[in-house]
Design a binder for these strands. Structure first.
Lengths: 126, 126
DNA sequence: CAGTATCCAGGAAGATACTG
DNA sequence: CAGTATCTTCCTGGATACTG
């Protein structure tokens, strides 16, 4: 394997890894998907729409998406606070691909799950 | 947030999360992409094609891809060992989406990187 | 050649509690 | 309401060494 510095340079150069790495985030894709369905969503609404994410992780996810320019955040100076999230144009442009991906997932899911089980059994019997 | 058991049931039910979770893997997408270009690849060849992955992680990645049925593994009973990896039909069917994704990444990468930097500066000045 | 074994470090994510 | 602070746990992935 390569040394750390060499690796980092590869990662920086490679646009695919750099950007696609974001999808490694456990929640990012899901947040984009939810935002694509609701247009405008407030923070606690998102919490409810994705019931198994903590507010800590959700806010971190939103911040990276905002940093990337995929999501915009609008704060209303009112009490109690009101913050709205929505997709930017770039964020929107990603949606069709995510949907295709989920369709692919739905199409092949049964086969994949079946295959996983079979594989598991075969591995055990060795 | 929900309790752990409730969460797990959500994840099991949801086909999208279940399958898309695989993309969270740091190397899975890249391996599929490389296999789509080379058709048949041997283990150490892959090591060389993806120079910044360790053999330990590479073999783990290959095993999960094999378990999912995206990659097939063919062992020749010779000395020294010879093992060939290639995409299955399901694996192949995923390739166009990955390519679209990488094209999207290439198109928007500059904007995203610029936005990240801007965002960083703004965060510091607060 | 094609991996495994072992050990370790870092980061992601979870639980809980708290605040402007 | 919309988060942050803190602490802890878990798990991925990395380094190195070794083997059928």
């Amino acid at each position: 394997m390569l040394k750390k510095e060499e690796k980092n340079s590869i990662i920086e150069i490679c646009p695919i890894r750099n950007v696609v790495a974001r999808f490694g985030n456990k929640w990012a894709l899901l947040v984009v998907l939810v935002l694509s369905e609701q247009e405008i969503v407030r923070f606690n609404e998102l919490c409810r729409l994705i019931p198994d994410v903590s507010s800590r992780v959700l806010s971190a996810t939103l911040r990276t998406l905002e940093a990337d320019g995929l999501v915009s955040r609008k704060v209303y100076p009112v009490v109690p606070p009101k913050v709205e999230y929505r997709l930017t144009d770039i964020g929107q442009s990603l949606v069709p691909f995510i949907i295709q991906l989920t369709e692919w997932a739905q199409t092949h899911m049964k086969t994949i799950v079946k295959h996983r089980k079979k594989f598991e059994v075969e591995s055990l019997s060795e």
